[in-house]
Amino acid sequence: MAPPSVYRTSIIDLHKRGESASDIVKRLGIPRRTVFATIRRFNELGTLADRPGRGRPITVSTPAKIKAVSESIRRNAHRSIRKMSEEMGISEPSMRRIVKKKLKLTLYRVTKAAILSERNKEKRLQKAKSFFADTRNGQHLVTVFSDEKLFTVEAEFNSQNHRVLAKDHQKAFDKGKTVHRVSHTAKVMVFGAICSTGKCPLVFVEKDLKITKEYYVKEILEKQLLPWAQQHFNGQHWIYQQDGAPPHTAKYTQDWCKAHLPAFIEKDRWPASSPDLNPLDFSIWGVLQNKVCARPHSSVEALKKTLVEEWDQLSIEYLRATVESYPRRLRAVIAAKGGRIE
């Protein structure tokens, strides 16, 4: 329905004073069609009010029902839209429309995270401010971010969202309805490092999925990361970032980094419990897992092959965009006064 003319009241006032339609057109400087249509409509209805709306009147998204849904969510935000629709006798599409469009609410998945005490928040805030100041000089663009992650040969799936379309149960089973699990699935731990202009070749940890400080330094930093970084940066200054895992914060590791790396973020500088600030944690690993674990693998070697293929396909544009989101996340942590941002 077209919105009413903003000149409706003025046109009718002049019309009541006895002015002709032509004079009103000249006086207000508006199209003749608007003036004649407005006068004709007033003569028919005898009022300035809008005509009754066309179509079926609203029966679901009424103010009363919107208020009832809002009150239900206020009492318990962990509500299922499907269950609320059943309890209130409202269809699920209508309930979603009320929640998203009328109440402007968004569904967020519940996640697990370490508890942040007030002291931890204060430290996170101060360290985030320090790193944010460094990003103004572009230091994050020459920072090598690193992390480790476990991958399993089994396919990852979400039982709430993963569905298979089939005509019957047997055909659904043939298409992968059932995902088999074992008690002790085969796993592989990988070490990854990225910067805004490239990525270190993926490193597989072979020592019973455990990284000691000696293994971390000699097999990963010395043999893998350092040669790649020296070739990639070609003598230019670069900074190394690592999280608070024990092999990373050990004195042995810190001393080696001081002696062999041009610059690195010491253990007391990187904020603890902050996977939301490491690009591998908040982006890279998730993308890699969605691609690699979309299907099961017959062996660890097959899993490794897929990991390397998908790792090599990560584009420079994607890496650059991920690293460039780091300052925005620091700003979000500062706005949250050191609290969680996701």
Rank of each mutant, 00 (worst) to 15 (best):
E266C: 10
R181F: 08
R119T: 13
K187V: 09
I11A: 06
T253Q: 07
S283M: 07
L116D: 11
A49N: 11
S183G: 13
S70T: 00
I211E: 10
V99T: 09
I11R: 10
C200K: 09
T322Q: 06
K83A: 07
Y108G: 01
Y240V: 03
E87K: 15
L14H: 11
M95P: 14
I39F: 10
G286D: 08
T9H: 13
K65D: 11
P3R: 15
R331I: 00
I316M: 03
Q230E: 15
F204Y: 10
R181A: 09
G18H: 06
L28Q: 08
P93V: 02
E342P: 02
A186S: 13
T249Q: 01
V287D: 12
A37F: 00
V69G: 11
W311I: 02
V190A: 14
Q170E: 13
G53S: 13
L261F: 15
R82T: 13
F36C: 09
I73S: 04
Q254T: 14
H15P: 00
G55Y: 03
P201R: 02
L150M: 12
E118F: 09
T322N: 05
D174M: 07
M95H: 14
M84T: 05
E118G: 15
A245E: 10
T185W: 01
H162M: 07
Y318T: 13
I90W: 11
A259H: 08
D23Y: 11
L116N: 12
K267G: 00
C257G: 02
E19N: 04
N76Y: 02
G198Y: 09
A113I: 08
F233P: 09
M189E: 07
I81F: 01
V6G: 02
V217K: 14
G244N: 15
V110S: 09
A128K: 04
L277F: 09
V333D: 01
V153Q: 06
A250N: 05
T111K: 15
E317Y: 03
S85L: 05
R109A: 14
L103R: 04
Q289E: 14
K213E: 07
D281T: 09
I66C: 14
P247T: 03
Q254V: 08
V217W: 04
H162R: 15
A37V: 00
A166K: 12
M189Y: 10
R109G: 11
V6E: 12
V153P: 01
N158K: 13
V188L: 01
I194H: 08
P327C: 05
D168R: 05
S283E: 11
S183D: 08
W256A: 09
T47E: 11
L105N: 07
S146W: 06
G53I: 02
L261K: 09
A302T: 04
P246L: 03
I284Q: 02
I211L: 15
C200E: 10
K65M: 15
W311H: 02
V308N: 01
P247R: 06
S117L: 11
W270I: 07
K102L: 06
V153N: 01
Q289D: 06
Q170P: 00
T59G: 07
I58G: 01
N158W: 04
V153D: 01
I211Q: 13
E154V: 02
